[in-house]
């Protein structure tokens, strides 16, 4: 089939399209576990919820503030922090990673959206989950646990 493209129309819209990404379709399905398969290691999912909780509190954000920054539902943000069995969808993980400046691929693994192929990540997640018991204020201990885990996540592999 032949298509026609108006040069003036393209010219007129060229500047406003600059810098905008266009990818649509799907996340990389080959790295995602099957929909009805193993929901992932509960410990990493628990660590994911704790990580989001600590990163949010470190910034002094409320749950509403986090949901707004990441453009996700407040109810989902609450579930992520409080329900260790809840596996958020890839878009939510992507948005949270961007809002909190965390590495997306490893967040997808921690959250149960991708298979954890890196044993070190699994071990670090267990260690982090164990050390970051829930208290209202971000304690020095939590702060150290958070710093150490985020440093590990950002190390190149």
């Amino acid at each position: 089939m032949r298509f026609t493209f108006n040069k003036e129309w393209l010219q007129k819209n060229a500047d406003r399209d600059d810098n905008l990404e266009i990818a649509a379709g799907s996340f990389s399905l080959d790295q995602l576990p099957p929909a009805e398969g193993d929901p992932g290691d509960r410990t990493t999912v628990l660590a994911f919820g704790r990580l989001i909780n600590l990163c949010r509190r470190k910034r002094g954000w409320t749950i509403e503030g986090l949901a707004s920054s990441a453009r996700i539902d407040v109810s989902e943000a609450i579930r992520i922090e409080r329900d260790a069995s809840y596996v958020p969808g890839p878009r939510t993980v992507f948005q949270l990673s961007t809002a909190l400046g965390l590495p997306r691929e490893r967040m997808l693994q921690l959250s149960g959206n991708m298979i954890v192929r890196d044993r070190g990540l699994g071990e670090q997640a267990v260690r982090f989950a164990a050390r970051s018991a829930s208290v209202e204020k971000l304690s020095r201990q939590e702060h150290l646990a958070l710093e150490e885990f985020v440093k590990y996540l950002n190390e190149p592999r």
């Binding site: 990404e21 266009i22 990818a23 379709g25 799907s26 969808g89 890839p90 878009r91 992507f94 961007t98």
Partner: peptide, 28 residues
């Protein structure tokens, strides 16, 4: 189904209707 980084292009520059998250399509 837009990837998160492309939502502005489809909503604003293409003027498409955003029907929200699709839980059956990875939450996109």
């Amino acid at each position: 189904h837009s990837l998160p980084q492309s939502e502005t292009f489809y909503a604003t520059n293409c003027g498409m209707t955003d029907l929200g998250k699709d839980t059956k399509k990875e939450g996109l």
